[in-house]
Structures are given as C-alpha cells and as structure tokens.
Amino acid sequence: MTVIVRDLRPEVPSDVEGFVRVRRAALPFMVFTAESVVHDLTRTHPDARFRQLLAEADGEIVGTAQVGLAHDSPEPGQGFLNVYVDPERPRRGTGTLLARVGEEHLAGHGASRVLAWVLDEPDNRGFAERRGYRASRSAHFLRLDLANGTLPPLQDLPPGVELRTAADFADDPRPLFTLDAEVTADEPSDIDAEFTDYEAWLEETWRHPLLDLGLTTVALVDGRPAAFTAARTDGASRYTTGMTGTARAHRGRGLAKLAKNTSLHRARAAGYREAFTGNDTGNGPMLAVNKWFGYEICATEVRYARELH
C-alpha cells in the first residue's frame, strides 16, 4: 500500500467529504462541514500560505493536515501544522508523511518555528516528540448535553445592559470586529495575534458558514458592545462556541456569562442537541463559568512546538 500526500481540491466533493470524515472521526468534539472546509481553504488570507493536505492510500483518504503561517502575529516566522489520521487507519506512516510535507511547506515560506495541537494520548504525544516537538500549554475540549441537560435559568439584566444578536449588526459589524480584536489579543496562546485587517476579518470570520448570527449574542453597555459569545453551528444538531470574551473595561461583571447563557438557551430552543467549547487549562475563570453551565471535559490537547532550521 502506497500513501501519497496532496492538496485538497475544493471543487472535488469526494476530497471535501473525505477531509470532513477524517476530521470528525479524529476530533468528534469539533464542528466541521463541507462548506466550512471549503471556506477555510478559499477565504483565508493569502499571506497565511494556507494549505489543507490529504493523505490518500489506494484511493481512500486516510489522513489530513492544516498548515500555514500565523500572518496576523506581530512575531514573524510562526507556523502551524495540525495532523490528524483516521483512527481506523493507524500506523501506515501517514502522519509522518503529512508532517514532513507540512514542515517543508512552512520552511519554504520562511517559518522558523512550527506549532501543532496534539491530542493528549500516548501515541499522539510520542509521535510529536519523536519528530523533535516539545510540549508547552494545553487546552480542554468540553461538551454540554443541550438536549437532556439543565441550563442555568436566564437572569435579569443589570441596569444599562441589553442583549442583542450579531444579526443586529449586519449593516455595520465593525463594532464587533473591534471587540473581537481586543478579546483575542488577551487570549492565552503561544502565538500572539493582532486583528488589524477589517476586510480580512469580514471574509474569514464574519462570513464564515458556521457562524450563526442569530445565536451569536452581544452584551451592550450604554449602547456599546462590551461582551459577546460567538456561536458556530452545523445547521443541524451541533453548536460550538467560537469565542467568548469581554472588553477590558467591563470585565468582572458577568457580562460574557449573561451572553453565553442566552445563546445556549436559544440554541436549545432551536433544536441543537450538543454544545462544545474549548478552554486553555490555565484559564480557571472560564473553566469555572463553563462548569456552571454544565459542560464536562471530554478531551485534552497539548500544544507542541518545534524549531525549524
């Protein structure tokens, strides 16, 4: 059996379906659709040098990788590479070949360091460490049973606070871009990010097919966005949180919790059955908030880094 690695062809349905199938099998706690995969490939900023790779064996897709440059980082030379192999097709050299092609792509575009998320399991961690990667921070995936669980009751809003949806900003989403940029800058990460390109944010985030404008909920203080939770859905049964955060001047008031609780209630009413989210393991306050909602940890991943020479 020969394994080959090639680029995903967005115009070929079997490529996209194979990519989604492998990713869902490897990461059942993340939300992917065919539309979201194509959008990520075709709408990501050109400076990211973004590629989605497929590993194919005898005509069957058995592995995937996402690789690119962190073009919005103030520190140049930062790359990312996330490799996932079909759990039913392990130990065929698939991951090694995907990693090699991804690393060569990054090195060819000037990356000096590559970061990868690796599931916290012995085989996966061993694979990364044998390739010279070293572990750093970690993050949890969390799941909430929306269909059968019990959400906290909706709370009264404090004076001067109102809740709106992202759909209310359809004519001018720039205030949400400003809030998202501030929150993202403070998110725990191995790579700092600076959102300065409004048009790129519109293309990559605002127009993303998973983003549900009706469930994305914004807390306004005196008429200005102060906190939000970005809701992404597969349009069927699965809901995930893209980002939840509060502007620095309004932190400590529970505004993000108000927004997320409202979004979750609306998602359940709309028929969504599962909710997923992710948190850095060191982000105690957000983990406590999600525990209050009823989320439970379902998996952990570790960020690994390797210097490219």
Rank of each mutant, 00 (worst) to 15 (best):
M1C: 05
V3R: 06
V3W: 09
V5I: 13
R6S: 05
D7N: 12
D7E: 13
L8W: 15
P10K: 12
S14R: 08
D15F: 07
E17W: 00
E17G: 01
V20C: 04
R21T: 15
R23H: 14
R24A: 12
R24V: 15
A25R: 15
M30S: 14
F32L: 15
E35V: 03
E35G: 08
V37S: 14
D40N: 14
T42N: 11
T42G: 10
H45R: 05
H45W: 03
P46G: 09
F50T: 00
R51K: 13
Q52D: 03
L53E: 02
L53M: 02
L54W: 09
A57Y: 01
L69Y: 00
A70G: 03
P74L: 02
L81E: 04
L81S: 10
N82D: 14
D86V: 08
E103T: 12
H105L: 14
L106F: 04
V114A: 13
L115S: 11
V118E: 00
E121W: 04
F127E: 07
A128G: 06
A128M: 05
G132D: 07
G132T: 07
Y133Q: 02
R134K: 10
A135H: 11
A139L: 08
F141W: 08
L142M: 15
R143M: 07
L146Y: 06
P152R: 03
P152N: 04
L154Q: 10
L154R: 15
P158V: 04
P158N: 07
P158W: 14
R164F: 05
F177E: 09
L179H: 02
A181I: 06
A181V: 08
V183E: 01
D186W: 04
D186Q: 09
E187P: 00
P188F: 13
I191M: 03
D192E: 06
A193L: 07
A193R: 03
E194C: 00
Y198Q: 01
E199R: 12
L202S: 07
E203Y: 08
T205L: 12
L210H: 08
L213P: 04
T216R: 04
T217Q: 07
A219H: 03
R224G: 06
F228T: 11
T229E: 05
R232Q: 13
G235R: 11
A236I: 10
R238N: 12
Y239I: 01
T241L: 13
G242F: 12
T244P: 05
H250F: 15
H250C: 10
R253I: 01
L255V: 08
N261P: 00
N261V: 00
S263V: 01
L264V: 05
R266N: 09
A267M: 11
Y272G: 06
E274M: 03
T277R: 01
N279F: 04
T281W: 11
G284C: 01
M286E: 02
M286I: 04
A288C: 06
A288Y: 11
V289Q: 13
N290Y: 09
K291W: 12
F293R: 05
G294W: 04
G294E: 05
G294H: 06
R303S: 01
Y304F: 14
E307N: 04
L308G: 02
